[in-house]
């Protein structure tokens, strides 16, 4: 019934956009050669000269990228809030009953395995970038769009899988780091610094779980989704998310390792 309430819903009626060369397998997909020629013409911001419905092959991709960008901006604020709390807690002491200044912040020594984990995450960023670029290689993308096999997806799958494995390795490494600290009798509740160590690694791990879920969704999408454009968007957006989590981790790790 929803369909009859709004027959104008352009997403559901799967209307073929002939002006975008859609012959049944979706519109012309974006590729790494049409980067500079977006917006359905050579116009920059001139909306008056930009017919609706022809906003170029990167229109849908751009929309989802913008959405992921705003989501990541919000996420950045989330981490900024936690990092501010980190610095506030670190700097704040109190005077006890006998007028001694007390600051219970005992720096948590970062377990060495975190260096290994960081390296794993950097490598995983490289693998996902390779997978992402392979989705947009012009000749393969055009072949796939015309229905001659699925060369881009096939060439991206191994790298995507590698990223998932590396991500899981990173999370296992983090779990090992927590275990090592527990063996040293350092728990989340131990002191203000350990509160933040476990909190920061914990919320980052939750974000990586979401990232791995997104990568798996992209992987399933590569097998199941029928439109190349959708496959590209899935891989592209999860890649940007993954990169951001990598960069966030580098900052958080620097904070934990050098600014305690």
């Amino acid at each position: 019934m929803a369909a009859t309430i709004t027959p104008i819903d352009s997403e559901r009626d799967r209307k073929r956009r002939l002006e975008d060369h859609d012959h049944g397998s979706g519109r012309r997909p974006p590729n790494d050669k049409n980067d500079k020629r977006t917006g359905g013409g050579d116009d920059g911001d001139n909306w008056n000269n930009r017919p609706q419905g022809r906003r170029g092959p990167r229109e849908k991709l751009g929309r989802y990228r913008l959405a992921i960008f705003f989501a990541l901006a919000g996420d950045l604020m989330f981490f900024i809030a936690i990092v501010s709390a980190f610095f506030v807690s670190q700097a704040s002491g109190r005077y006890d009953a006998y007028n001694n200044y007390i600051n219970q912040w005992l720096p948590t020594t970062v377990p060495p395995i975190l260096w290994l984990n960081t390296a794993t995450l950097i490598i995983s960023s490289a693998t996902i970038e390779i997978a992402r670029r392979r989705m947009f290689q012009e000749t393969h993308a055009m072949e796939e769009w015309l229905g001659i096999g699925k060369p881009t997806s096939k060439r991206a799958i191994p790298w995507l899988t590698a990223t998932i494995v590396l991500g899981l390795l990173f999370l296992t490494g983090q779990w090992l780091a927590w275990n090592q600290l527990h063996l040293q009798r350092v728990f989340m509740r131990t002191n203000p610094s350990s509160h933040f160590f476990f909190l920061i690694t914990g919320v980052h791990a939750v974000h990586l779980f979401l990232g791995i879920a997104a990568l798996m969704a992209a992987l399933i999408g590569l097998y199941r989704s029928r439109q190349l454009e959708n496959r590209q968007i899935l891989v592209d957006c999860s890649a940007w998310y993954w990169h951001s989590m990598g960069i966030f981790w580098l900052f958080l790790f620097t904070l934990l390792a050098f600014f305690q």
Binding site: F70, G74, D75, M77, F79, I80, A85
Partner: peptide, 14 residues
């Protein structure tokens, strides 16, 4: 909303 609710979420986690 994007700026504010993220900070609220962090506060709720703490």
């Amino acid at each position: 909303s994007i700026l504010a609710f993220s900070v609220l979420l962090a506060a709720l986690v703490l």
